[in-house]
């Protein structure tokens, strides 16, 4: 199953979004969180990102979802074409779309595509 790694500025945001995504997509989906800095502050830690990547990696590839700023920059640094890819999508919507697609055992490319479709989701129309 494709893993979904959530990279955010705060540990709470990343963890709760991961819990929400697993709640909607199913607990079998490897959704992991890398939020905040190692000392618990706001920011991004490449060490935490790499740890979350290892925890979500089942060998079928990883989709990274980042919130903004340094999370996006850090996620771009750990991208590996064809294996670890960053989705260009809002954080919560992208996390849920990717997790649901992953739960259907879709391949990496399709999970990324599903996540990125969430960019255009409208809520009022």
């Amino acid at each position: 199953m494709v893993g979904v790694v959530l990279v955010a500025h705060s540990a709470g945001l990343a963890q709760e979004t991961a819990a929400l995504a697993r709640g909607i997509a199913g607990e079998a989906v490897p959704v992991t969180a890398a939020g905040g800095t190692e000392d618990g502050g706001l920011g991004t830690s490449v060490d935490l990102v790499e740890r979350a990547m290892r925890a979500a990696d089942q060998g079928d590839g990883l989709v990274l979802i980042a919130d903004l700023g340094s999370s996006v920059l850090t996620a771009r640094l750990v991208e590996e074409p064809g294996r670890v890819v960053l989705a260009d999508v809002p954080f919560v919507e992208g996390a849920i779309a990717a997790a649901v697609a992953a739960s259907a055992d879709l391949p990496l490319e399709a999970v990324l595509e599903a996540a990125e479709e969430a960019r255009g989701f409208r809520k009022l129309t």
């Binding site: 905040g36 920011g43 991004t44 490449v46 060490d47 700023g69 850090t74």
Partner: peptide
């Protein structure tokens, strides 16, 4: 890259 938590690190 490893030690700066903000955008300036990467």
């Amino acid at each position: 890259i490893r030690r700066v938590g903000g955008a300036s690190g990467p």
